[in-house]
């Protein structure tokens, strides 16, 4: 019975393992692939799921020059998941020649908008502020802001962040309520965000003559709660970093298809790169759950026998 006793002691030791070893294992599982991808620059191919394809098609199918309202409803705490989505969607809009209007319902969302626009439009001198894009910034009030924007955008925002009155911004000419935009995008980490946009701004238009098209980008925690809205109340959802990676892949494929010699800048492959640490992190999680259960039931059997 020596081997059996040996097993038992391994179980017992594993059961009492210092949890900091598990922390270290998680750190290595995430950090090592980042270093590896950082050195080699390799990424995995992505197969888009229908909800992501739906989001891509919603942007792709609009005629060039369409007006898209992008609400970046998150703060730096969730930027790790959502920034790649924001970048990919804004980039897609810019590639298609859409006019982009940005805003945020989160007080700490302002610099996120600035950073995203700088990243995407920094080398696009043809995208002139006021004509091709405009930043409305932050407004306090959550659903109250949505209610005002449903009636008149200018009720919520008298000016943009650069203090230009809305009526003097060329790209907003003809926009009264939110339904006058051709597409609404919310990239959100919780309240107030995509769910509230669906409830307050999108759903009321569905019984009217001009339904508002809506695309959401969402954190992993929130995504399952948005799923029932697709495809009726939302044209598409980007769920967690995987959704971002699929969207990035679709945009980059479209770029490559249009111009086979095009080189996609590394900054537009962030989510795809992140799928490597995800892969190892997920595998570690599965392994830990399985191992934990083996130890648990192993010990329990031993106790039962003893």
């Amino acid at each position: 019975m020596a081997t059996h006793a040996g097993h038992a002691s391994i179980f017992a030791r594993l059961d009492r393992i210092d949890r900091r070893w598990i922390f270290l294992a998680m750190f290595v599982a995430v950090a090592a692939p980042i270093l590896w991808v950082g050195v080699t620059g390799k990424t995995f191919p992505e197969a888009p799921t229908p909800a992501v394809q739906g989001a891509f098609d919603a942007v792709e199918s609009l005629p060039s020059g369409a007006r898209v309202l992008v609400s970046m409803d998150f703060d730096p705490a969730s930027a790790g998941e959502l920034q790649p989505m924001a970048t990919a969607i804004v980039r897609h809009c810019a590639l298609r020649g859409h006019r982009i209007c940005t805003m945020t319902l989160w007080p700490a969302g302002g610099p996120i908008i600035d950073g995203t626009m700088q990243d995407v439009l920094g080398d696009r001198p043809d995208y002139r502020y006021g004509e091709h894009w405009v930043n409305l910034g932050y407004r306090a009030g959550f659903e109250g802001v949505m209610k005002q924007m449903n009636s008149r955008v200018s009720l919520a925002y008298a000016t943009d962040v650069r203090q230009t009155p809305l009526e003097r911004i060329p790209m907003l000419e003809g926009i009264t309520g939110i339904a006058d935009f051709d597409l609404l995008v919310s990239i959100s980490a919780g309240y107030a965000g995509a769910k509230e946009w669906v409830q307050y701004s999108v759903s009321p238009t569905l019984t009217g003559s001009k339904p508002l098209r809506f695309v959401a980008g969402s954190t992993g925690v929130q995504t399952p709660q948005l799923i029932p809205y697709y495809p009726n109340q939302m044209a598409g959802i980007l769920g967690a970093i995987k959704g971002a990676a699929e969207y990035e892949y679709l945009v980059n494929e479209a770029v490559r298809k249009a111009d086979p010699s095009a080189i996609v800048p590394a900054k537009f492959q962030e989510a795809q790169r992140r799928m490597a640490p995800q892969l190892f992190g997920h595998v570690l999680m599965v392994a830990l759950i399985v191992l934990g259960n083996v130890v648990f039931f192993g010990l329990r059997n031993r106790e039962a026998r003893a």
């Binding site: 950090a31 270093l35 790790g80 998941e81 999680m285």
Partner: peptide
């Protein structure tokens, strides 16, 4: 999905340390 989100946030912090601070990698 929740686990996926948690790991993504950790990856972002690691990337900051390795890229912006230590200059070990330069993916972007």
């Amino acid at each position: 999905f929740t686990v996926m989100g948690r790991i993504a946030l950790l990856a972002a912090r690691c990337e900051f340390l390795f890229d912006d601070w230590l200059w070990l990698i330069d993916p972007a």
